[in-house]
Design a protein around this nucleic acid. Structure first.
Lengths: 231, 231
DNA sequence: AGGGATCCATGATTGGATCCCA
DNA sequence: TGGGATCCAATCATGGATCCCT
């Protein structure tokens, strides 16, 4: 029997149970239950996997500035992995506030987003067709004190530069676990930022991304080893 | 032969010539030339007449913060009239900037919008079917010194209240020729404004409107009398 | 009939991320 | 293979205004 929609989970226990029930299922199986078509590849549907799994778990669809599970304060993130369990990509977290001089870590959007995350590892091995790729074992995570200290240090360094009008100097090389990179429909999309002289300038929208070294270490704390093998 | 699109007019002369060519035509006639359908009524298409006439004149469609005819600095406004020539409604001008403490009349958005306006009277008599309603004689207008002084006085009174956090006290009763009223998709739409204590609060978006007494007087300066009668 | 409330179209923005070249 | 560039869906915001109750 096909399930076409799902109410939000009542608590973390229920959310985690649903997520664990997805472990091992292929995208084709999940899509079939939700009445969705699997695209040929992700080139023209880059967010498809994330949207599919949000639907499968009963997440609230993209309402601004709210977590995926508002009642629980939980954010869902897919984590694309190579067949050997290493993260394939960095992880997009949220947009960078480019004109907020008063930003502080404690009340920052990124800290709220990362405070409680349901990580869903997903198979992303090149060459494996999308329909047969599988969901892995879910992990409900909060940063430990060491992780939070690292995130905070990166955030403060990067946001200092943003507020001091040094945005154009920022490359993805800054930050140990967090980086700032462009996040736009294309190179023509512009928003407002702070220029060298403190005045407003037009610039590319930017996003915060978690480096794959960070997400790899995070997985490593919970899973001694991990793979999508048939064993 | 149907005309499906129209390049922007090169100068005010050309714009005015096109507008005068529309005088006396029904909405059905204009829509037919543009390959558009006339809706049964305006209840679920409130902006239809404005959009039709923009298309007919070669206006740039709703690009943000730019006039309808950017090269000319001209704004187009329909002016719905009763059969006897009195304005039926107030005229929406633009949104009210709710968080701009430094706003001044000289550089205000509303002043730029009203600096040069092509008024298009349109028949709006209740009971007359939309398809047979007609366009009237166009008027290319700029505020005279008296009109500008009145607009400025109203604007300064109203914007003082906005900036002092007295927004919730403003009703449509303030202002001799200009008023502030809600301008939103519905009562749930919220934006940012200034609260009583100076902090940001969530509030309804507001718009500036010209009272119909103002637009009536404006027409009266140019047309001794005016109607859509068959004579 | 004045004024608070609302409606549609469309462009801009955000949230979901992966693509793909050097 | 890191990092600059890009893609889709859905929501939000803006511009076009009129509706409709008291």
């Amino acid at each position: 029997m096909a399930v076409f929609s799902m109410p939000p989970p009542a608590d973390e226990r229920e959310l985690l149970a649903r997520a664990q029930a997805l472990a091992g299922l292929s995208f084709a199986q999940i899509a079939a239950h939700l009445g969705r078509q699997v695209p040929r590849d992700l080139r023209r549907a880059k967010g498809w996997v994330g949207e599919l799994l949000e639907l499968a778990l009963g997440a609230t669809s993209g309402s601004q500035a709210a977590p995926d599970f508002p009642a629980l304060g939980v954010e869902m993130k897919t984590l694309p992995l190579w067949a050997d369990g290493r993260p394939k990509e960095s992880t997009y977290v949220c947009t960078v506030p480019l004109t907020d001089f008063d930003a502080c870590w404690e009340t920052s959007w990124i800290r709220r987003k990362l405070n409680r995350v349901l990580w869903l590892p997903v198979e992303a091995q090149t060459g494996v067709p999308l329909s047969v790729r599988r969901v892995g074992m879910a992990l409900l995570w909060s940063p430990n004190s060491e992780e939070e200290a690292m995130l905070r240090a990166d955030w403060e360094e990067l946001m200092d530069m943003v507020c001091l009008g040094q945005l154009e100097m920022i490359t993805a090389h800054y930050g140990v676990c967090l980086q700032i990179r462009p996040k736009a429909a294309n190179g023509d999309a512009l928003c407002e930022g702070i220029g060298e002289d403190g005045a407003r300038v037009r610039t590319l929208p930017r996003g915060f991304y978690l480096r794959s070294t960070f997400t790899a270490a995070l997985l490593g704390r919970y899973y001694a080893s991990w793979s999508f093998s048939e064993n």
